[in-house]
Design a protein around this nucleic acid. Structure first.
Length: 984
RNA sequence: GCCCCCAUAGCCCAAUCGGCAGAGGCAGCCGACUUAAAAUCGGCACAGUCAGGGUUCGAGUCCCUGUGGGGGCACCA
């Protein structure tokens, strides 16, 4: 029907008709490239440090602003227009801050270890370093073209050996530390990481017991290291880990989805006991929660971190185990249970009187000691699982639970299963004998792996009690109309008293306090805190990561390498892949690629005992390692003597005292990135930062003071009748006969869907396409004007022209399109223009300060449009406009600024200040309402008094008409803008 | 299942302490320029704020209930 490809000749004609000096994509490109060259040549965005190699000529400005983007991974897939959104936003903020006088630190580096490059290497045999370097180069070029004001001297990659060296150094700092819960902390508080030597000294002196019953002096070196390993903040341990055969590596808990699969690749994950590196992040659980209160972060992210750490306060309570019933002998082996007590953790000690049974996790060690030989008299048939002896029932249930993966345990939903162990525990508050069950709804890794079950107050316990016909006692009075089941809400405590203590009549909080005090007094319980957070699994069976800077001695003892042997570089290997297995091969074991580099693994060193052959660690650090401290390296990227000079860290990130006397945590002033890093990266980086703080290397308590999550740019995609994606840019939108939009591609109707932008959906738009069609400034203005930074929204290439028109109009307000001559006059602007300028300056300052570039741009457009209507644009009007446009569209602003006769870059020119006198309007429109409805408007002076305004309003004819003779009950006056008259 | 966020014009989005629903952009329509079209320029129109209830002199804004969309957590004792 219509011709789609008739535009080639049209374009030629169009080109010929365009004035020679119009702000087109070609002119924009010319301007942009020349300014980028000049910025680079002059080092315009180099931010001086207070000292060291990057120091400037004089004193550093007192006001500083450290703006930070989340570390990009240099993907080989190429950027689409969604990727730079955050980078443009930080650039705009940074440029604005420079113009308000701050020393702005802004740079970009690359998180370059990781799987994509390694997987590419596995497929092609090309070394991941080559792939990585190429990708970085491509990405750097694409981003530079956007005109980002980065200090290029501060750019690095985590794979640089100069960076790896300090990553390994920090690892050793953590390895060589322990958490002393009694150590005073700089800046207040108790509990800090301390050098492991202080702990060794306490063991040596006998001040502290080794924990294994033997004196320090009697231990071998390997035994000593075993003891220290239980205290080190980085340690090797046999731990149940998430083994992913499909990836050939273990994963951190955080990298496993709720349904037990790998977050990346979606392979099944199995629990296995393996010897791995761990980070004792749990030692920092409290501080990681508490310090959130001092951070300027989105509440949502704080909540996610709080949930992840999962601090719950409650009590540990000890229950005595009563053994079998009626003289039944204990255990098939005849041995008495090694553990004659069960310790539980509960957040609801107030419900102790409602405990009617106990549940142990299937893996609970008490069961290893044996169970009664026979079922006690009166054992309910449903409790036995059909077995004739408790030992059989327990063994069968344990085997069944062990065979299940996490997926399967959860796939069975809420169906509670378990068996009786034949054991009874004694409730310390009332002496009741409670049958002890094992059930897989109790997890071995949380709390003590054992619970007291209160079916009256816990839904899970209630479900179990119902299934196994166990008694249910309510200890909190449920509200009237309660439909049975477990009542978990607040209320008055009932059924809870013994000879010494009564909780009856107390509310839940009071009851908790009362019973905890009683338990502590009797020595059967203590108030305690537990965390959902586990220690962080820190080794991966991968090639492309930082090697561990340690070696192992013959006796298996781990030895930290001395500083001068850092960095430990990766060896060349013939094959980059770990051994992978069938997805579901749970019995397989990790075999990292480094294990095959024999010459590297077995290394002769003199570590003080003469030359000896040691064995290197064949694991590598996880991808998170490099991103745990990069914010510190930007400050002092070339330092070879320290990871960062303390004086430099103090200047850029140190705590500041606010006007109200509160001291901040310090950290980067603004950190922008996606919310997907809310838990993992942000928690790990905070942990490392705090360790470094404790050890005195840095002055800031937190790495990121203000966090901002930008939204995502998404896009429409279209599928044809077969469900195949068609090129989105070729889809035509029309309004159908029913008024709803209809989308067609090559004449056939297609369906629209909304989501990510990407090659596979055929809806990808790249920055390069935007540069060539519109120029970088237009692209930047469009991205910033689409909406608030924290909201996700659809990309619409057709709408980009609006941003281009704004810049074209700005250009035309200063430059003649035909001659290229400056058209600006030095004569004063008219009164109205001066008022619009002043108003715009005030508004733009407000919007920019609040990180709302979208509304700031709207104000700039208003001023710009106003200037198109005046006969001759005045310098005093266009100059502020150009300066204010500079943060979002820096190239065109620089060009116009230069054409206006300025030699210096406007980068450090002060942002315009409004003339306060012009901000006061001569008259204000006062709205006169009758019963909330607008009936009239009055032009009044802004200074008008309430009484005068009331009289004026009441006298207004429209008001009299609306009142229609009714009396007046009340008049609300909000001078000078509003009067509301309430009739009787 | 529990918790959090969002919903304003055909579309993207503004609206300060509760005070005239509209700043800006896209698309649309009319006009100017043009042989014509595109581009450009000038102008115009368009919703009563997801639904229902409440508080108030006055609600997009505060409260409650529901609908739709997005996100987090999910046997965590």
């Amino acid at each position: 029907m219509s011709e789609h490809h008739a535009s080639v000749t049209d374009t030629a004609v169009t080109d010929a008709a365009i004035p020679a000096h119009r702000y087109t994509a070609d002119l924009a490109a010319h301007i942009e490239l020349s300014w980028q060259a000049r910025w680079a040549a002059e080092g315009t965005f180099n931010a001086p440090n207070p000292t060291g190699g990057l120091a400037g000529d004089g004193e550093v400005p007192a006001e500083k602003f450290y703006v930070l983007d989340m570390f990009p991974y240099p993907s080989g897939k190429g950027l689409h227009v969604g990727h730079p959104l955050g980078y443009i936003a930080t650039d705009v903020v940074g440029r604005f801050k420079r113009m308000t006088g701050a020393n702005v630190l802004h740079a970009l580096s690359y998180d370059a270890f990781g799987l994509p490059a390694e997987q590419y290497a596995v497929q092609t045999g090309q070394h991941p370093r080559i792939t990585t370097d190429e990708n970085i180069e491509t990405m750097r070029r694409q981003l530079l073209r956007m005109g980002l004001a980065h200090d290029e001297r501060r750019s690095f990659a985590t794979t640089d050996s100069g960076y790896v060296r300090w990553t390994q150094w920090i690892f050793l700092q953590i390895f060589n530390s322990w958490y002393d819960h009694d150590a005073p902390r700089p800046g207040g508080g108790v509990g800090a990481a301390r050098p492991i030597g202080e702990l060794v000294a306490r063991f040596e002196s006998g001040e502290r017991a080794t924990g294994n019953g033997r004196a320090w002096a009697d231990l071998t070196a390997a035994e000593r290291e075993d003891v220290l390993g239980t205290h080190r903040l980085a340690y090797v341990a046999d731990v149940p880990v998430n083994w992913c055969p499909g990836l050939g590596t273990v994963l951190a808990n955080e990298e496993v989805t709720a349904d037990g699969r790998s977050e990346r690749g979606n392979f099944p994950v199995f629990k296995r006991n393996l010897r791995q590196w761990m980070m004792r992040i749990t030692a920092y659980g409290d501080r990681l929660v508490d310090d959130l209160d001092r951070l300027d972060w989105p509440e949502k992210v704080k909540t996610m971190q709080r949930n992840w750490i999962g601090r719950s306060e409650g009590a540990r309570v000890t229950f005595a185990v009563a053994g079998g019933d009626g003289g039944a002998s204990v255990a098939a082996t005849g041995a008495a249970p090694a553990v004659a007590e069960i310790e539980v953790f509960t957040t609801r000690p107030d419900t102790l009187f409602g405990a009617t049974f106990m549940v142990l996790a299937p893996e609970h060690p008490l069961l290893d000691a044996g169970v009664p030989a026979e079922w006690p008299e009166g054992t309910h048939s449903a409790w036995t699982g059909g077995h004739t002896r408790p030992a059989d029932a327990v063994a069968a249930y344990r085997a069944q639970a062990a065979a299940k993966t996490d997926i399967e345990r959860q796939a069975e939903g809420r169906e509670k299963s378990g068996v009786f162990t034949g054991l009874f525990a004694v409730n310390p508050v009332n002496g009741n004998r409670l049958p002890v069950f094992i059930a897989d709804y109790v997890l071995v890794g949380y709390g003590t792996g054992a619970i007291m079950a209160v079916p009256g107050g816990d839904q899970r316990d209630h479900a179990f009690a119902t299934a196994y016909q166990l008694p249910i006692v309510h200890t909190v009075e449920p509200p009237s109309g309660f439909d049975g089941g477990a009542y978990t809400g607040d209320g008055v405590t009932i059924n809870s008293a013994n000879d010494e203590v009564s909780l009856n009549g107390l509310d839940v909080a009071e009851a908790k306090r009362a019973i905890t005090a009683w338990l502590e007094d009797k020595g059967v319980g203590t108030a305690t805190v537990t965390y959902r957070l586990r220690d962080w699994l820190f080794s991966r069976q991968r090639y492309w990561g930082e090697p561990f800077p340690v070696v192992y001695d013959d006796d298996g003892r781990v030895i930290a390498l001395p500083d001068e042997l850092l960095p430990v570089e990766l060896p060349e290997v013939p094959d980059f892949s770990p051994r992978t297995y069938a997805d579901d091969d749970a019995d397989s074991s990790p075999e990292p690629p480094l294990a095959r580099a024999d010459e590297w693994v077995n290394v002769e060193l003199d570590l003080g005992d003469g030359p000896k052959v040691y064995r290197r660690d064949t694991n590598t650090m996880p991808n998170w390692a490099g991103s745990c401290w990069y914010e510190l390296r930007y400050l002092d990227p070339a330092n070879t003597a320290a990871m960062v000079d303390p004086e430099i860290e103090k200047y850029w990130m140190g705590p500041r005292t606010g006007p109200d006397g509160t001291v901040t945590t310090g950290g980067a002033d603004l950190y922008v990135g996606g919310v997907e890093h809310a838990v993992l990266h942000l928690l790990y980086a905070r942990f490392w930062h705090k360790v470094l703080f404790d050890l005195g290397h840095i002055s800031s308590v937190e790495p990121f003071h203000k966090l901002f999550n930008q939204g995502y740019i998404q896009a429409y995609a279209y599928t044809d009748a077969r469900g195949v994606h068609v090129p989105a840019e070729e889809v035509v939108e029309e309004v159908g006969s029913d008024g709803d939009p209809v989308w067609t591609w090559n004449g056939q109707v297609v369906q629209r869907e909304y989501g990510k932008m990407g090659k596979s959906l055929k809806n990808m738009v790249t920055p390069d396409e935007m540069y060539s069609a519109y120029g970088a400034d237009t692209f930047r203005v469009y991205e910033m004007s689409m909406g608030p930074l924290d909201v996700s929204r659809p990309w619409d290439t057709r709408a980009v022209v609006g941003a281009q028109r704004f810049l074209q109009r700005l250009w035309r307000n200063a430059v003649d399109e035909d001659t290229g001559e400056l058209t600006v006059t030095d004569a004063p602007a008219d009164e109205e223009t001066r008022r619009v300028v002043a108003r715009t300056i005030a508004d733009v300052r407000t919007e920019m300060s609040a990180m709302r570039p979208n509304t700031a741009i709207a104000k700039l457009i208003v001023l710009n449009n106003h200037l198109t209507s005046v006969p001759r644009v005045a310098r005093e009007a266009i100059e502020p406009l150009v300066l204010m446009t500079a943060p979002v569209a820096p190239h065109i602003a620089e060009e116009l600024w230069a054409r206006l006769g300025h030699d210096e870059s406007l980068t450090y020119h002060p942002f315009p200040e409004p003339d306060e006198a012009l901000l006061v309007a001569e008259t204000v429109t006062c709205v006169v309402q009758v019963q909330g409805k607008v009936r009239d408007r009055l032009e009044v002076p802004p200074s008008i008094g309430e009484d005068e305004l009331r009289e004026l309003a009441l006298a207004a004819p429209a008001v009299q008409r609306a009142l229609d003779g009714r009396g007046i009950r009340k008049v609300i006056v909000r001078a000078p803008k509003l009067v509301n008259i309430v009739p009787a």
